[in-house]
Amino acid sequence: MTTADMSFDFANVDPEIRYKLLTGLVVPRPIAWVVTKSVKGVVNAAPFSLFNVISEDPPLVMFSVDTKPGDRVKDTLVNVHATRAFVVNLVDEATAQVMNNCAINFPPEEGEPEAFGIPLVPGTHGPVPRLAISPVAMECKQVTTLNFGPRRDLVIGEVLALHTRAGVLDPTNLRTNYDTYQPVGRLGGTMYAHLEDRFSMDRETYEQFSARTAQEAAAKETV
């Protein structure tokens, strides 16, 4: 294994290698288990690990959609364009395996929840149901979709409603109980990560920083 620093000029790197580098290094990533509904009523559930929350006012999330083999448009994107609605379900240790199963390339007429017997809960703010087994679900409406060429679309949605399993949030202060939630993060390749090892860091104010550095400077002058 090399011990030298490495640099990559992405203009000269194949997309497959870019993907390997980016998804292997930008970790851990949250997983969006996106549920959509076709115009024919088929409920689709597909995982996406290029996902995150991007704003709280307005409450916005985004996920990135690539294409199927042969550059065919994924069912998720077709359904979002048709209904402008989707539900982002988050993934924990208890649901990780069935989420991974939903990455199988099913045909449009066959939905993953039905194939794997995943119970559904009707939506409260739209036509798309959420997964009953998910610890957290966000009902969203499509705000916009940005296209970045034949193989990539970025879906941005506004969160209309948030649902959590009992015990995920402390009802008195709304803090997340990670011992109950146990989220799973995405790494590179076929690897995932438990988020069990956590630590906390306090942040100084500018005034505290100024006072501390002044005290340290004064202490050095007296030495």
Rank of each mutant, 00 (worst) to 15 (best):
H194K: 07
A115K: 14
L154M: 15
Y192H: 05
A82H: 15
D197Y: 06
V73I: 14
P69N: 04
D66V: 04
A193D: 04
E16M: 13
A217L: 07
W33V: 07
D9E: 12
A214Q: 15
V78W: 14
A103R: 00
N101G: 01
D5C: 01
A11G: 10
M99W: 00
S134L: 15
V223Y: 05
I133H: 13
E16A: 15
T222M: 13
I17F: 13
H163D: 07
M6C: 03
N12A: 14
Y178I: 05
R186Y: 04
E216K: 09
G111C: 06
V35C: 14
G189V: 10
V34D: 11
R18V: 03
G149E: 07
V35S: 15
I133G: 06
L60G: 02
T144H: 08
N100I: 00
E196P: 01
L146Y: 15
Y181K: 06
N177Q: 09
T213S: 14
L60D: 02
K68D: 06
V87E: 11
N89Q: 08
T205P: 08
V98L: 00
M138R: 05
L162M: 14
D57C: 03
N105T: 00
E221Y: 03
F63E: 00
V155M: 09
T67A: 14
R72Q: 11
P122Y: 09
L154V: 14
P15Y: 06
V184M: 10
F10G: 04
D57A: 10
L174Q: 09
S38T: 05
N173S: 12
T76S: 08
L50A: 08
E112G: 13
L146W: 08
P107L: 06
T190F: 06
K40T: 09
Q182V: 12
T23D: 02
Q142G: 01
Y19V: 02
V13W: 02
A214K: 15
G157D: 07
V136D: 05
G111W: 04
L162D: 10
E216F: 09
D5F: 00
E109H: 03
A218N: 09
E158V: 12
A218R: 13
D202P: 10
G149M: 06
E56H: 07
D202L: 10
S7Y: 05
K40R: 12
P183Y: 09
I31Q: 14
I118F: 02
A11M: 12
V65Y: 09
Y181E: 13
E112M: 12
I156P: 12
V98K: 01
T83K: 13
G123V: 12
Q142N: 06
T190M: 04
N89S: 08
V43M: 03
Y192K: 03
T3Y: 04
N105L: 01
E112S: 10
D170T: 06
Y206F: 10
T145K: 07
P119W: 14
A217I: 05
P150G: 09
V136E: 05
N89C: 05
V78A: 15
A217K: 08
T164V: 15
S64A: 08
V35T: 15
Q142R: 04
N101P: 00
P30M: 07
G157A: 10
K40H: 10
R130A: 08
V35Y: 11
A217G: 04
R203C: 02
A103M: 02
L22N: 03
K220E: 11
A45H: 05
L120E: 13
T176D: 02
A45S: 08
G167S: 10
D57L: 01
